[in-house]
Design a protein around this nucleic acid. Sequence first.
DNA 1: TCTGTCACG
DNA 2: ACGTACGTGACAGAC
Length: 419
Amino acid sequence: MKLFKTVEMPLVPIIVEMNMTGALLDLAYLAALNREFVGRLDEIKDKIIQSVRQTLHDPQLTFNIASVKQLNDIFFEKLKLPTDKLRKSQHGRSLDADALEALKPYHPAVGLLLDWRALEKLRNTYVEAMPPMVDSEHRVHTFYNQIGASTGRLSSESPNLQNIPIRTDEGRRVRKAFIAPPGYRLLSVDYSQIELRILAHYSEDEALIEAFRQGQDIHRATAALVNGIPLDQVTKEQRYFAKRVNFGLMYGMGAQRLAREGELSRNDAQRFIDNYFKRLRGVKAYLDGTKERARTQGYLETLFGRRRSFERLRNPLALHGGETSQLEREAINMPIQGTNADIIKIAMVQLSARLKAEKPRARLILQVHDELVLEVPEDDIPATAALVRDIMENVCELRAPLKTEAKVGLNWADMDELP
DNA sequence: TCTGTCACG
DNA sequence: ACGTACGTGACAGAC
């Protein structure tokens, strides 16, 4: 039996139903996936080593492609790949995915290494690690830590079920191992753009609030506003860029980073930000006001009163250089991320009671920050989806309305949107 | 035990 | 002049 930490929280009671149920894994599928991955990994590894041997005319050469230290030796001492622009680290140059992307044109081994890294990650962290953790019913029981994250979020460990892959096709194949039992479906309901809606609420920015009230695509609306063009003239690039800015600003991003990621000059990036703040005055006011409050009060609160100390910001004497801006970025983000955490926790508490009374065969199995996943008998799907959405959307009334999207499927990867 | 890397929101 | 976009957990290699 899994032990649970029991800590009295003034805000939200402990939810144990998820852990009690656990998430069901398709072990046969994972075993097949593992065999496939092992074969492909070996193949890619051989290709990498062969290609380096060929370039260096050294058929005996061998090295561990998982070792950043040895890769530094191969790439920069032996193959003489360019090091400019690459960050330094303990064993030479950083060789993370960004760095490898930049090195890709210089040797075929680099692209292969990116492929190998991605597959190796999926195999080691998920495909191979999870099957030994299931119980006799093939379910994994994660542990949700309620007091680990400084913003009030939950975190998940042993295994972490809040970082199951979804962004790549190979990743989604891993996610597909999470299945519903016979006669059941997985129901996933997630908040749409909840952090930007919370920002709209806090900032009281009329343009942002109005865009949400009208149900507009928020990134498209931002792009139109900042560029001073009609909604239907926004290009894909403009929308994508506005999206990065919308998220970046909630994290305290500067013009420098924006320029680097948007592939435009430092000045153009600064101009976009200036324009953004001119059109979205409330957002600027929120960012400045939040930093100011953290500094003068020494703490910040979420919408529901969850508090995080910023005492170090109030006592500048205690700060060493560089720490101020770090804390300011954390301050900007905390009320947003923390309010999101409060809202979904409150929804979970309400949902727990309603399910027990009205849909006792439906079970809450996972929480992933803005998403709840349930196991629901087929016949109960429409009613349960409506119940979950109703609870989630009505936890509180923000100036920008809370909106959810519901999906249903036989596994956690292939899901169909419910109307 | 620490560092680098990378999976997610 | 420069870094520096927030919050997490898991794994392999280096020490």
